[in-house]
C-alpha cells in the first residue's frame, strides 16, 4: 500500500497531507494524555507500535502470485483507539520512507491516511459493532484486524485511481485496475493479520488482563459471573 516517492501528483500529495495532518496532531495529543494519565500504558503502547513494525516489514506471498504485507494497525486501534494508532502508524511509515525508500515523504500524507487513519478507524468500527452485537471478543478482534488491513489497501487503490484515472474508463476503470493489484492480493494477508492479532490478544489476556480491563477490551469477570454474584 506504500505509494512510492514522487508517485502522486503534487496537488494530490498536498491534499492527502492536509487531510492526514489533523488526525496525526490529534493523535499526538491523545498519546501524550494516555502516557501522562496511565504511565503503566507505556509498555503496551510500545508493544502495539512494535506489532505494526513487525507486520509491515513482512512481505508475504499471496494467491494472486504477488507479494504484499499486512499493516498490524488493528491491534493498536482496538487497544488504544484509532487516534493513537495514527501516531504509531506514522512513525512506522516515516521509518520506511527514510531508511528503506519504501513509500516516501511526498506520499507520506496519502500513506498515513490509508494505513494509519482509514484502516484503524475501519477496524475499530467493525470491532466495536461486533462487540455491541454480542460477538465474542476474539471474533470481534479477528474481523477488526481483518478490516483494518483490507480497508487500508482499498483506500490506497482509491487514492491511485483518483490521481491516475484510466483514459478510457475513467476513475472507475483505474479503481478496478489498482483494486485488482492491491485488494485481491490482500484478502489472504488480511486473514493472516486477523489470526496473528487474535494470537497476540490471547497472549495479552494471559499476561496483561488488568491492562485490557482498564482499556475496556476485557471484563474482570464474565457477565454470568456477575449475575451469580449479585
Amino acid at each position: 500500500m506504500h505509494i512510492a516517492e514522487g508517485f502522486l501528483p503534487p496537488l494530490h500529495a498536498a491534499a492527502w497531507g492536509a487531510a492526514s495532518a489533523p488526525f496525526v496532531v490529534h493523535g499526538v495529543r491523545a498519546l501524550t494524555r494516555e502516557v501522562k494519565e496511565n504511565p503503566e500504558s507505556t509498555l503496551l503502547l510500545g508493544a502495539s507500535g512494535a506489532f505494526t513494525f513487525v507486520l509491515s516489514a513482512l512481505k508475504i506471498p499471496s494467491v494472486t502470485g504477488s507479494c504484499s504485507h499486512p499493516t498490524g494497525t488493528g491491534l493498536g486501534a482496538i487497544l488504544f483507539r484509532p487516534p493513537i494508532m495514527a501516531v504509531l502508524g506514522t512513525i512506522t511509515l516515516l521509518f520506511q520512507a527514510l531508511l528503506l525508500a519504501h513509500g516516501g515523504l511526498t506520499t507520506l500524507g496519502a500513506n498515513v491516511f490509508s494505513m494509519a487513519i482509514a484502516g484503524p478507524w475501519a477496524g475499530f468500527g467493525v470491532y466495536l459493532l461486533l462487540r455491541r452485537f454480542g460477538a465474542p471478543l476474539m471474533v470481534a478482534v479477528f474481523f477488526g484486524a481483518f478490516s483494518a488491513d483490507l480497508v487500508t489497501y482499498c483506500v490506497t487503490s482509491v487514492q491511485l485511481a483518483l490521481a491516475f484515472p484510466d483514459p478510457g474508463s475513467g476513475v472507475a476503470g483505474a479503481l478496478a485496475k489498482f483494486g485488482g493489484i492491491f485488494a485481491v492480493t490482500q484478502i489472504p494477508l488480511a486473514v493472516s493479520e486477523g489470526l496473528l492479532t487474535v494470537l497476540v490478544m490471547r497472549l495479552l489476556m494471559q499476561s496483561s488482563k488488568s491492562d485490557l480491563v482498564r482499556l475496556g477490551v476485557a471484563k474482570l469477570a464474565g457477565r454470568s459471573d456477575r449475575k451469580a454474584a449479585a
Partner: peptide, 26 residues
Amino acid sequence: FSGADAQAEAAITELKPDYEPWFTPL
C-alpha cells in the same frame, strides 16, 4: 511474487506513460 507496490507503479506508467515521479527518495 513481485511486490504489489511495484506492480502499482507499473500500472501508473501504463495509465499515464508520460508521468515522471517529481521527487526521489533522500
